[in-house]
Amino acid sequence: MVNLFELSAKEISEKIRNLELEATDYISSVIQRVKEVESKVHAFVTVLEEDALERAKEIDRKARRGEKLGSLCGVAVAIKDNICTKGVRTTCSSRMLKNFIPPYNATVIERLLKEDAIIIGKTNMDEFAMGSTTETSFFGATRNPWNLSYVPGGSSGGSAAAVSTRMAPIALGSDTGGSIRCPASYCNIIGLKPTYGLVSRYGLIAYANSLEQIGSLAFNTYDCALLLDVISGYDPRDSTSIKIHSESYAVCIEEDIEDLRIGVPREFFGEGVDPRVKERVWKAIKSLEDLGASYKEISLPTLEYALAAYYIIAMSEASSNLARYDGLRYGFSVDDERLDWSSF
Rank of each mutant, 00 (worst) to 15 (best):
N3F: 15
F5R: 09
E14I: 05
E22L: 13
E22C: 11
D25S: 13
V30D: 13
E36H: 08
K40S: 11
D51N: 01
A56E: 01
E58L: 13
D60I: 04
D60V: 07
R61V: 15
R61N: 05
A63W: 03
R64M: 02
L72D: 06
C73R: 12
A76P: 14
C84A: 10
G87Y: 04
R89H: 04
T91K: 10
L97C: 11
K98F: 06
F100Q: 08
F100G: 07
F100E: 02
I101E: 03
P102S: 02
P102F: 10
Y104W: 11
A106W: 13
E110W: 14
K114S: 14
G121T: 14
D126L: 10
F128Q: 07
A129T: 12
T133G: 00
F138R: 13
P145E: 00
P145C: 05
L148M: 09
Y150K: 15
P152H: 03
G154D: 07
G158L: 09
R166G: 04
P169G: 04
S179E: 01
I180Y: 03
C187L: 04
Y196D: 00
R201T: 06
T221H: 08
Y234L: 08
S248T: 11
Y249E: 01
V251N: 07
V251K: 06
E258M: 09
V273E: 00
D274M: 01
E279S: 12
I285A: 07
I285V: 15
L291G: 00
T302K: 13
A306C: 04
S316Y: 09
A318F: 01
N321V: 12
N321T: 02
R324D: 01
R329I: 12
D335V: 15
E337Q: 03
D340V: 02
